[in-house]
Design a protein around this nucleic acid. Structure first.
Ligand SMILES: NC(=O)c1ccc[n+]([C@@H]2O[C@H](COP(=O)([O-])OP(=O)(O)OC[C@H]3O[C@@H](n4cnc5c(N)ncnc54)[C@H](O)[C@@H]3O)[C@@H](O)[C@H]2O)c1
Ligand SMILES: NC(=O)c1ccc[n+]([C@@H]2O[C@H](COP(=O)([O-])OP(=O)(O)OC[C@H]3O[C@@H](n4cnc5c(N)ncnc54)[C@H](O)[C@@H]3O)[C@@H](O)[C@H]2O)c1
Lengths: 232, 232
DNA sequence: ACTAATTAGTGAATATTTTCACAATTCAAA
DNA sequence: TTTGAATTGTGAAAATATTCACTAATTAGT
């Protein structure tokens, strides 16, 4: 029982929303806001207050009746629940544009992911500097995962190479994969795979734009932080 | 009625899965496979065959009873349904590591998204080449959206600037936004916003790894393309 | 202290999504 | 042509997820 002792089988959709609460709570903390209620969180994020309360009930964060949730407590509880406080070691395979961008991305480190290696099969890329790291050859990958206790592998290679890179990471003992390639990766059930799905997201957006246009949506909109639909 | 005339109110989860069917069907087409059944698709993607059939019923693609779906027909129907055949004009705001990676990413173009501009507020970045494009100043953004009929804006600026960039894109007439920043963007209901959520995805992965370890998952796994759990 | 207002927490009610299960259909092969 | 195996498409059932609505608690103000 690291944190709550009852985090078993939480639906993925809830975990996904928890990350939204976290980032929003962090913004509020940055603004010096001390308390936030379930209805405020819900309105800001387009959810009902009941959903927010049910979701936060999974996390060990006690709201206070007439105030809501204390922002710093909420941040800490979510950070802890999501494992940010413990931290992960991650490596990136594929030192292309996206792989380099991720390796250099400070937000990841700030959310508990220490990128401790970048690997590439292309000899011309090996030796290149990426921030504080040097691109290493694939031959060193297995040993690194073992020696540096790497938890997570980021797959940033072309689709054609993605499954074989995944296989290599898996047999080397990786514990989870972020797949940035387009294709579906198959992995054993003890190695969770999460897809980046950036291109899929764009396709979803295209579809949303089209159906929005078909409906003839319009709205009087005041710029900036305005409530969603009901109420304000 | 652009394509089917009945694409109204399809759940986002279905659209999301349709993109998976598309990418997998494209792989199959590349391999020269001619037919695919709902059970094969489902097994490969970790879904039940009934879900696949129900999903594909939303798209105008007729399966054939004893064969399944014809791969090329399936690809075309999904491409058409998702608007790839019509195509979109997109711009990227923020010529940082991620913005440049996206602008250079061929898969996007191949999926109907023509990146027709990259913008940045930093004078030192303006004028830089990104592939075939030149980074332009923010002052040209509004006119570009109008003149080049830009549909989609990609927000690739730091979180602190994301909402104000979104506001600028919205008042300039953008039709949809891909938000790569961490924060939640508020927009009018006629401008759909889809989040990239790369950092959130990593957090979800961390959580999955932890709960997987807590469950003590193990599995005898044969590398490569192996069935999921039931059957093979 | 009392009162009015606010809000977390939660069981019950809805709504949505997924899965089951089977009739109808098609194909291949005998 | 007939038979048998395979597979779609789809109502109905089951499982999940969300929202409602109410209780109990807490605070601020008087
Ligand atoms: N660039 C983007 O914005 C973007 C967006 C969404 C998805 N993706 C996906 O992310 C992946 C990487 O994209 P990118 O733009 O960085 O591509 P890239 O071509 O710039 O980089 C790919 C890198 O992988 C390396 N590589 C190839 N095969 C390898 C192997 N077997 N082992 C190790 N390294 C190998 C190459 O040498 C290269 O450095 C691709 O699958 C792409 O579809 C990219
Ligand atoms: N790099 C990654 O892998 C990654 C992953 C996930 C999310 N993100 C997010 O994507 C966004 C961009 O990331 P990045 O790594 O490219 O950052 P970056 O710092 O490399 O680039 C940001 C760019 O935005 C420009 N910019 C800043 N304010 C602007 C404004 N008001 N108008 C126009 N341009 C402006 C800057 O000049 C800079 O060129 C960030 O919000 C980041 O959190 C990045």
């Amino acid at each position: 029982m690291t944190t709550s002792g009852k985090d078993n089988s939480i639906p993925g959709a809830v975990v996904s929303r928890l990350t939204k609460y976290l980032t929003h709570a962090q913004v509020l903390r940055g603004e010096g806001v001390q308390w936030v209620s379930s209805s405020e969180l819900g309105e800001e994020l387009g959810l009902t207050s009941a959903t927010v309360r049910k979701d936060l009930a999974h996390v060990s964060v006690g709201g206070i009746t007439n105030r809501g949730y204390e922002v710093t407590v909420l941040c800490d509880a979510l950070l802890s629940f999501l494992g940010v406080d413990v931290g992960w070691n991650a490596i990136v395979v594929g030192a292309g544009n996206l792989g380099k961008a991720l390796a250099l991305h400070g937000e990841l480190f700030r959310h508990g992911f220490a990128i401790c290696g970048v690997f590439d099969s292309d000899g011309r890329k090996v030796g290149m500097r990426v921030g504080g790291l040097t691109v290493r050859p694939m031959s060193e990958l297995a040993a690194t995962i073992h020696d540096e206790r790497v938890d997570i592998g980021v797959i940033a290679v072309p689709a054609a190479a993605a499954q074989s890179v995944a296989d290599l990471l898996i047999i080397s003992g990786i514990r989870g994969l972020l797949n940035l390639s387009l294709i579906h990766i198959v992995a054993p059930s003890n190695v969770p795979v999460v897809d980046g799905r950036l291109v899929a997201r764009m396709l979803e957006l295209g579809h949303a734009v089209r159906t929005s246009a078909a409906r003839g949506d319009t709205s009087d909109y005041r710029l900036g932080r305005v409530g969603r639909s009901e109420d304000a």
